[in-house]
Design a protein around this nucleic acid. Sequence first.
DNA 1: CTACATTAAATTGGATACAGAAAAGTGAAT
DNA 2: ATTCACTTTTCTGTATCCAATTTAATGTAG
Lengths: 217, 217
Amino acid sequence: MDQATEKRGEQAERIAAGLRWEIVSGGLAAGAALRQEKIADSYGTSRMPVRDALRLLEAEGLVQMMPNRGAIVAPLDAGEFQEIYEMRGAAEGLALKLSIPELTNRQIERAGAIHEQAEHASIKEFGALNKAFHMTLYEPCARPRLLAHISGLNDLADRYMRLAALQLDYVRQSHAEHQALLDACRRRDEAAALAILSAHIADAGQALHKLLSAKIA
Amino acid sequence: MDQATEKRGEQAERIAAGLRWEIVSGGLAAGAALRQEKIADSYGTSRMPVRDALRLLEAEGLVQMMPNRGAIVAPLDAGEFQEIYEMRGAAEGLALKLSIPELTNRQIERAGAIHEQAEHASIKEFGALNKAFHMTLYEPCARPRLLAHISGLNDLADRYMRLAALQLDYVRQSHAEHQALLDACRRRDEAAALAILSAHIADAGQALHKLLSAKIA
DNA sequence: CTACATTAAATTGGATACAGAAAAGTGAAT
DNA sequence: ATTCACTTTTCTGTATCCAATTTAATGTAG
């Protein structure tokens, strides 16, 4: 067990990371009840760090806590989905604009490599790779708060994506748009890159919206 | 005492609200240590809900927690200041764009009233009124997550503003820009409103930047 | 049989207790 | 006087315990 190597004062983070993965990857369905004691048992701790972890995830929007009624995996909602994509557009547009002047060739190629990987990846890994691709392009902007914000939005978005990505040829379109975005970055063409990114996010939002509005709410 | 009317399960929120006010309003200086037991005593609770409150404020960026070393009021930093204003620009631009089509005359006049109030307010109240003015204009967009995000950014920004607002005639300029923004909203002129808001936020950022870079970091 | 009240079980929120880590203090050796 | 080792104190993180609240279950009256 890695519990022996666990430093004191970081259990909440460990539990939060585990739950985050389970929620984002779909292992825990939306609306599922999160009983403190069960989680505590499965992580070999008391309920106390679990509560801390749940608070963390609540702040990220992945968990919903009702006073005296416990926590559930945040439900999926078409309206919130739209909101997340609008916010992604604004935040990622800003990040890319600030990043482009700082982008090195090395970083662009790292994004390219992730892009290649994503092309041959299973649907399970797509979400994480998609996020990694975007984050790689934004990192040079060196805005920790902005990047954390975007990362959180991507986690939220992944949950919705997972619902639809199966039956959708959206993935192929996404690949093409990523390719175009990479090209624009290579040319350091800020205007083009921003336009492509904006369209990319809006497209994804719209494409998924139809599929989702049937499945949820 | 209002503690008798206090519902179970909401003490953390109450403590967080109190601390938030003390931090944003400047009662607690940046870098000040936040001892759990002292806070617990002053709010008449145990350390437990205090810890929850601190985690909340950490997620908002007002508090910084170091494992096994306690929490401090988040330090002020010129770089973060810039980042916050960039994010405000992106987020508030989006909110205003979505709001304008939904704005009723009644809501515009409510914002106008707050604007009037702010004109005769003391420096202590300026931050809160400034925030209220902006939030009133954004509320009609009906995007709870986006509004919460903006609210948090405004709280962060207020701390920096307070440092500079004293000696600055920025307040007068801000009033003028608010007036112009209101007029554009009354005309439902989206393009003008967005341009004014963008400039307003950028101006504020730049105006404060000079003053602050001397005082901090 | 249904609706309602009452009771019992499950579960959370908060308080207390304890263990471990960091910080402050003390003293000896150089 | 300064530095290093050691002790003491302070404070945080976690576990355990208790009270309050919600949810389920049971029984009773209509």
